[in-house]
Design a protein around this nucleic acid. Structure first.
Lengths: 161, 161
DNA sequence: TGCTAGTCGGTGACATGTCAACTTATGTCC
DNA sequence: GGACATAAGTTGACATGTCACCGACTAGCA
C-alpha cells in the first residue's frame, strides 16, 4: 500500500512516448527499406556483417554473436534467406558441429543496393534530428538504462548467481 | 560520392546502443511479466485499457485506437485472448458493423494481478534509472525524433497532407 | 580411454505482426 | 431509392520471434 502503484502523469507520458517513438521509427525505417530494396530489417541485419566479412562468409556462431541473436532465431532467418537465394549454408571444416553462412552474389548485390539509402534514412529519421550535444546526452541516458537491465539467465557468459 | 555513405564510429555506436538497449529493456520487461503473471506484453496492452473502461467493455475500434494497433493485429490478438478466456466478444448494438470486447472475470483477475509488478518493473528498469532532469531531457529528445518521422499513410487521424 | 558436461545448429510448435482481400454495414450524393 | 465511397471487422497467407527439445560433436577430466 505504501509502494507507488501507479505512474504519475509525466512518467506515464514518458513511458508511452518512448515506446511509441520507437515503434514509429522502426516502422518508418522498415517500410522505407522494403520499398527501396525489398530487404527487411532482419535481412539487412544479417547481410551487413556478412558483407564486411572476409569472402562474405561467417561461421553461424559468429554471425549470431555479431547481431546478438539466439541460435534458433538466426537459424530460422538464415533458412528463409537461403530459400530466397540471399545466402547459402556450407559445412564448417574446423568444427563438425558448426556451419558457415555465405553471402551469394545476389545477396551481395542486395545489401550494396540497400545500404546507402538505409544509412540516409537512419540519419534523416534519427541522427540528424539531434544536435551533437543531444546525441551525447542520449548516449549517456541509454548507457544508464542499459546497465540496469538484468542479464538474461540463458546468456552463456553471465549465469544466474 | 559527396554524400556520407557511412556512419561515423560515434554515430554507429549510438544507433547500435539505441537498438540494443531497447531490445534488452523490452526483453527484460516481457520476461518478468510472463514469469510473474503469465501475461505477455500484447495481453497487457489490451487488458489495461479494458480494465479502465466502464464495465470492462470497449468497442473494438476504440480499443484499437487506444493502443494504436491496426485492425488486423487487434483482431488476431483478441482471438487468441478469447481462446484463453481473458476477454470475450459481443455484438455492437449501435453499429452493426462493429463489435465489442469485454473483459472476463478471469481477465480482470489477470490484469489486476500483473499490474503492480509491471509498474514496479518499468520503474526499476527504466524510470528510476534516470534523474528527473534526465527524464525531461529524454522527453525532449523523443519528441524531436518523433516529429521527424513520416506519418504512415494508413493512420486514420493524420492523413498524408 | 571412456564418461560427462557443454557447445552448436536445427526443427516443430506456437505467439506475434503485417498485408491483401473479403464481407457487411454506414454514410453521402444524385 | 440506388450507386458509390468509406468504415469495421475478420480471415488466410506469410514473415518474424521464442521456447523446448533433439542430435551431433567437442572438450575436460577421472
Amino acid at each position: 500500500m505504501v509502494e507507488p502503484r501507479r505512474l504519475s502523469e509525466q512518467e506515464a507520458a514518458l513511458w508511452q512516448s518512448y515506446r511509441e517513438t520507437h515503434r514509429e521509427l522502426m516502422r518508418a525505417l522498415e517500410a522505407r527499406m522494403i520499398a527501396n530494396s525489398g530487404l527487411s530489417g532482419a535481412d539487412y541485419a544479417l547481410l551487413h556483417p556478412l558483407s564486411e566479412a572476409e569472402d562474405g562468409v561467417l561461421r553461424t556462431r559468429d554471425l549470431g554473436r555479431s547481431v546478438g541473436w539466439e541460435r534458433s532465431r538466426l537459424s530460422h532467418q538464415v533458412s528463409r534467406m537461403e530459400k530466397r537465394g540471399l545466402v547459402c549454408r556450407e559445412e564448417c571444416t574446423s568444427d563438425a558441429r558448426g556451419s558457415m553462412v555465405r553471402l551469394t552474389p545476389l545477396g551481395r548485390k542486395a545489401i550494396e543496393a540497400a545500404a546507402p539509402d538505409h544509412v540516409d534514412a537512419v540519419r534523416t529519421y534519427f541522427l540528424d534530428r539531434l544536435s551533437p550535444a543531444e546525441q551525447s546526452q542520449l548516449a549517456t541516458l541509454l548507457s544508464r538504462v542499459a546497465t540496469g537491465i538484468p542479464a538474461t539467465c540463458t546468456t552463456p557468459e553471465s549465469d544466474c548467481d
